[in-house]
Design a protein around this nucleic acid. Structure first.
Lengths: 370, 370
DNA sequence: GCACAAAATTTAAACGATTAACTTGTGAAA
DNA sequence: TTTCACAAGTTAATCGTTTAAATTTTGTGC
């Protein structure tokens, strides 16, 4: 491999000059010399040695990713987004996956992510990233926990698909509340009166946000807010079944169901079919996540698509902007989701002005948004 | 961050001594001093600087991964396996994803992976890995191409889930042929006479291997090898539909279907249902990949599970063994798959001695296996 | 032609590890 | 007592960059 020194010799200048040219310190080098240097570099196929650069300047183009579990489709797609942005900007990515799903991480009371062991693992990964010379960290969560204050580092840090209350944190997420409002509004517009909610676990932050969105829509429409219409599951199809059974046992049955993920929706559909209820007519149904399965259940499941790849891309771009000099950028982004209409609920978007116009009025967490 | 020098000062020795202790060069340092050093290191929370080590010794504990597309479940799970092994052995992973699916990579005649552009991208990634100080490379494919000779590097290289004919290459795969034989044998044991095959594209290597397995089973049983029973799809559900329609239009209909992936199987099931054919009785069906969907179609789809995580783990272990000194290890591994019985075909495993006993007799590629 | 500022380039010291080569100390054999 | 081998440590060069500081070159006005 050709080194700086080789390039310098070939171009007949000092290594410092070459370094300046390579780093585009334009005010340091005359254009004539710069051209000569660039040619020499090209001819030798020069590639800067990242390890050397990182060592000397503790600056580099390496992004460290700490992810909760790469085998989930969320983390998976976000990492893809990060990779795309990194590629474009000539950054490399170091992957440190915590493999959370492989651990007993959520027993109802105790959350693995709050244990000392988890903290230590995260801290270690970040320390290692530092010694490799990483210039910043992206934390990719599975979206279920509030991890405010868990991670401590002096490198720039961006949270992707994870919640933290600290207003100084950089965070890229999807807009759960807003899209939940939109979905429920659409159901109301079609004349649905009693909209059941199959929520995620109470302690889940995104579930809370979606719940807020649901309530916002109902309040705005002056519709019934019957607590009996809200059931909590654990994201599994089985919990969706149970929730649905309870809802359908109500005296006044719901005529619509908003499920906070597709797997619970599939569970619910199983129950509805058993009961011989006409899905899409007698009752409409919407899921969340828009996983591949939606197209292949019958009837096809209307769902909400989260811009995961986009979240990853944006997180990486934000991090790169943060590291590459003091450019200011917004602390929080919440990207819009998209409702994907299929057979269980024929979606029609709202007339312009009505969409989520009052998102902030009910969101108790609105104050966090910097 | 504490450096070697800090540790040396605190222990009252030279940096060389500390280095020797840290690298377990036991014959160089007395046990008394070693203990003192280890204590000092612990007290200071010393972490070796990977960039410095890589620079000085071009040796490190960084594994570079070149993957074809991280958003596919195969690559995804394999990376998880690599991560697990790396974690255990204190290695770090650099991820370089090619994002192949995002490119027009397969138009029937031209395969993106054969273009100059692809080669350049791979070469670049590897060059960058070198400058970071990576000690070796794992190439993670999507299993469809023979990439013999595509990659050139002097770092140790292990192929995971990718085929290459070069006998000197290290490669970890699943045993496609053997499990295909097992599956078809099981169908024959249940008295099925005409077993249809919905294959992947002709040019796909794993599809070829599975075809060999299918033929082996039929030959052994002296069963009919009707070319009309073989249809080729492109892995998509739609192609599965088409293939199935053609097979069911035959004068002598198949009474069993072996599909080379689950999506085509799902497509086939759609057709069978439309035709009112009793799946699991009139015709039995088996897919390949064992994706989540299998549990949620009706009837639930019997499938073949590929040990993806295990493939990743083994590939990483192999690479680590290769880099950490000249330990010899086998060039090729083909891990066994598992048949997961569900409703479309009630699987019963064979009496011991019959299972795939003649795998090698028909495999034209057997000679490759070192 | 001179003084002096500004621009262009070079020099050389880091960064934190590894390791060949060298020094010192100890004990056994001659 | 001398000699030599060996074990236990140390010294210092090195990997390929970056960058503050020093130096040289160029340009400007008088």
């Amino acid at each position: 491999m050709a080194t700086l020194k080789d390039v310098a010799e070939r171009a007949g200048v000092s290594t410092a000059t070459v370094s300046y040219v390579m780093n585009n310190k334009e005010n340091k080098v005359s254009e004539t010399v710069a051209q000569k240097v660039r040619r020499a570099a090209r001819e030798l196929g020069y590639q800067p040695n990242i390890a050397a650069r990182a060592l000397r300047s503790s600056r580099s183009n390496i992004i460290g990713i700490v992810s909760e579990d790469i085998s989930t489709f969320q983390v998976n797609n976000i990492v893809q987004g990060i990779n795309q942005a990194a590629d474009r900007e000539n950054y490399q990515i170091l992957l440190g996956d915590l493999n959370l799903c492989g651990k007993i991480w959520h027993d109802g009371r105790q959350d693995y992510s709050l244990t000392m062991n988890y903290r230590k693992e995260v801290r270690d990964k970040i320390e290692i990233f530092r010694t490799v010379g990483a210039c910043g960290i992206i934390y990719v969560g599975m979206h279920d926990r509030d991890i405010t204050g868990l991670i401590r580092t002096d490198m720039p840090l961006v949270y992707a698909y994870s919640y933290t209350k600290n207003p100084g944190d950089y965070m890229v997420n999807n807009d759960n509340q807003r899209v939940a409002t939109q979905a429920v509004e659409a159901m109301l517009r079609q004349g649905r009166k009693r909209i059941g909610l199959i929520s995620g676990p109470v302690e889940s932050v995104p579930a809370y946000k979606r719940l807020m969105g649901y309530q916002t829509a109902l309040m705005e429409a002056g519709a019934a807010m019957d607590p009996a219409l809200i059931e909590y599951g654990d994201w599994s199809p089985y919990s969706g079944e149970k929730a649905c059974r309870r809802l359908m046992a109500l005296e006044e049955r719901p005529d619509a169901l908003f499920c906070m993920n597709d797997w619970m929706a599939v569970g619910a559909m199983k129950v509805l079919k058993e009961m011989g209820i006409a899905i899409g007519e007698e009752i409409v149904l919407i899921g969340f996540d828009d996983i591949e399965l939606c197209d292949y259940v019958e009837p096809a499941l209307t769902s909400i698509s989260i811009p995961l790849v986009e979240i990853g891309r944006l997180a990486a771009e934000k991090l790169i902007r943060l590291t590459a000099g003091g450019q200011e950028c917004r602390h929080r982004e919440e990207l819009p989701c998209q409702i994907i209409g299929r057979e269980t609920f024929v979606y029609e978007s709202a007339p312009e002005k009505e969409i989520g116009k009052s998102v902030k009025t009910v969101d108790k967490t609105a104050e966090m948004s910097a």
